[in-house]
Structure formats: C-alpha cells, structure tokens
Simulated scan of single mutants.
Amino acid sequence: MSELQTAEDARLRHLLTLDGLGRARIEALLDHAAQLRSLWRAGAPLPALLDRRTVVNLFFEASTRTRTSFELAARRLGADVVNFDISGSSTSKGETLEDTLATLEAMDADAFVVRHKENGTPARLAAHARRAVVLNAGDGNQAHPTQGLLDLLTLRDHKGRIDGLRVAICGDIRHSRVARSDVHGLRALGAAEIRLCGPAALLPDAAEFADCTLSHDLDATLEGVDAIIMLRIQKERIEHLPGFDETEYFARFGLDRRRLARARSDAIVMHPGPMNRGIEIAADVADGAQSVILEQVANGIFARMAALATLLGRERNG
C-alpha cells in the first residue's frame, strides 16, 4: 500500500497509511496543520489552496464526525465538496467501485476521501485512479492515517515532541485501524515505548507489533506513561468475551481516576470517539482536566486540511 503513495517525482500522490511515510513527511504534515490552525485562530484569511478543486466523500461506512471533519477541511480551503450517496448509487446496482471512480473522475473530481469496512479498498481505488488523489478515511482494521496525524498533532502540542514519549493504547487493539495508524506514527517520530493493553481476545498477534509491549494488565500498562489513548469497544465484542459483561470490562480495562493516577501527573488522555462512557472510560476522566479529546476533534480539521493541501494544493509539500 505504501508504494502507491509516492509519485515518480517523490511528491505525495495519495494518503493511504502512515506506515513507511517517514518522519520528514509526517512532520511536514503536522507543521502545515499547525500553520493553518494558527491562521484560522487568528482570524486571518486562509489561502485558497483548493480553489477549483472538487473533493468527493465516498463513505461506505457511517461516520458523521470523520466525514464532517473532511468536509469542513476541504471547504475552508476553497474546494467544492460532494458527499456521494452510496445507498442510491450505481454500486448498489452492481457497478464496480473502479467504474464508479472512473465515472466521477470523468466529471473532474480531484480527490476521493474513502472509508470502507474492507482492508485495502482505498489502495485498490488509488491503483485505478488516473488523475485524482485518494485519501484513506479508514479501511477495515488496517489504517486511518488522518486520525493518526491528528493524534500526533495533539500529542506534540502538549508534550512539545514525540521523541522519548511513553504512550499507552488501550482497548480493542486487534480490530482498531486507529491503533495501527497511531503506532506507525509514534514509531516514525521516535516514541520511546508503545504499550498496548486489552483482553487477550482483543490483542493482536505479537509479531505484528514486535516493538510494542503487549499486556492484559491495565494498571501496570499505565505506570509512568506520558499519554493514554483509549479505544472504543463495540458492545457486541464484549458479549463474545468469555466471562465479561460491560461492568466487568470497565472493572478490568476502563480508565478511571484511580488508574489515571498511575500515569505521569501531566499525562494526557485521548480517545478517537465516539466514547462509551462507563465502559472504556469514566465520565469524570473523559471530561477532566487531563482530557484532550475535544482538542483532538478540533485538530482533525487542520490535519485533514494539511493532507488535502499537500495532495491537491497549488503549492505542494515535497
């Protein structure tokens, strides 16, 4: 998948994964996001980097927050945005995704933001794109690169760096594209330690995360960490865990004030949303002073602005 991302002239062609993207490119995207955020918050006019560009949101999975974030990002930079109605499209009548993409490209669509339940679908479309760029808004359990970028941006805002940080990611790691993109980004930017924690059935194969510490003990995992990323747990998955219900899951893997106290006193609490309060995170922690969850939401717009501008802008980053 990573080989599709870079064009022959070395510029970024698509954004499909943070895996293999490299430190320099990731930092350039974060710097660009921070620059755009500074302009926006100062009330200064944003550059119309996407003027006369058309961005099509192709969401084959429901995701109000990610789609809205991409739409706001594109519109703020001057793009036209089309939210493609999958339920009424020709794909529901048997047309292939590749034919749908080709048809929309013929209408001068410049970018496709793709979310799909199957691994590799954004890459599959990128391989068939003639001119347009493809941004992965989440595929299966494989990658969610812009979520990774916004998480890295939020971490850097609060810690000043990623180098040397100890980060815990807790919950359903096995099925999480967010966890994978966060790990790829944290690795690239020099995190000292990445700890993954969850029930045995929801942890990935150790070989996939050979440089991470895997654990079933949340208390030990949180000891001395700089940041905690809690992941949403689907309730139907809890039902299939032997000996677990929602109360038991929270008792063993939920983040409450007692557990938060095991982390560093300045540790931040993160969550990609939507949250299940009282299952993976206590309400007073989610709304507490160490929570940066709403900052993540805000940073998502700027991270996606930077990604779109890099791929489509009149001035491309290298």
Results as ranks from 00 to 15, higher is better:
148 G>E: 09
216 H>P: 12
266 D>W: 07
240 H>T: 15
262 R>I: 00
251 A>H: 09
185 G>K: 01
187 R>N: 06
233 I>S: 12
180 R>H: 14
219 D>F: 07
220 A>D: 14
191 A>S: 02
196 L>M: 09
180 R>V: 08
201 A>K: 14
162 I>S: 11
263 A>W: 08
197 C>W: 08
212 C>D: 11
211 D>M: 01
252 R>M: 06
187 R>V: 04
202 L>F: 05
180 R>T: 10
248 E>I: 15
234 Q>I: 02
242 P>G: 05
189 L>P: 13
264 R>K: 15
225 V>W: 00
235 K>T: 13
148 G>K: 11
175 H>T: 06
193 E>F: 05
240 H>F: 09
239 E>L: 15
264 R>N: 15
210 A>C: 05
223 E>P: 00
232 R>D: 06
183 V>I: 15
193 E>S: 06
151 D>S: 14
222 L>D: 05
257 R>H: 13
156 R>W: 12
184 H>G: 04
263 A>F: 09
204 P>G: 00
242 P>L: 03
243 G>H: 02
263 A>V: 12
209 F>L: 10
210 A>Q: 07
192 A>S: 09
238 I>S: 07
193 E>Q: 15
208 E>H: 10
244 F>W: 00
239 E>A: 15
201 A>P: 13
168 A>Q: 10
168 A>L: 13
206 A>V: 08
229 I>Q: 13
243 G>C: 01
205 D>V: 10
234 Q>K: 03
219 D>L: 12
219 D>V: 14
177 R>K: 04
151 D>P: 13
259 R>V: 00
178 V>G: 07
170 C>L: 12
178 V>I: 07
257 R>Q: 14
146 T>E: 11
224 G>I: 02
239 E>V: 11
207 A>Y: 07
227 A>G: 11
158 H>R: 14
221 T>H: 05
187 R>C: 00
252 R>F: 04
232 R>S: 02
253 F>M: 03
147 Q>D: 05
258 R>E: 15
189 L>C: 08
153 L>F: 11
150 L>Q: 01
181 S>H: 01
253 F>Q: 05
233 I>P: 09
166 R>K: 15
152 L>Q: 13
162 I>P: 08
154 T>W: 10
186 L>W: 04
219 D>N: 11
228 I>K: 03
158 H>E: 13
193 E>K: 04
161 R>L: 10
226 D>F: 04
253 F>R: 06
219 D>Q: 06
216 H>M: 10
169 I>D: 12
262 R>K: 10
227 A>P: 13
161 R>Y: 09
261 A>C: 00
199 P>N: 01
174 R>Q: 13
208 E>N: 14
224 G>F: 07
178 V>T: 14
193 E>T: 04
261 A>D: 14
167 V>L: 10
195 R>N: 09
264 R>M: 11
159 K>I: 01
217 D>K: 09
235 K>G: 11
233 I>V: 15
240 H>C: 14
181 S>R: 05
267 A>W: 07
147 Q>A: 10
172 D>V: 06
146 T>P: 10
197 C>H: 10
150 L>G: 02
248 E>L: 15
216 H>V: 08
177 R>F: 06
243 G>P: 01
209 F>C: 07
160 G>I: 09
265 S>H: 11
232 R>H: 05
239 E>F: 00
154 T>D: 11
189 L>N: 06
199 P>R: 00
162 I>Y: 08
221 T>F: 09
224 G>Y: 03
179 A>W: 03
178 V>R: 06
174 R>E: 12
171 G>R: 03
254 G>F: 07
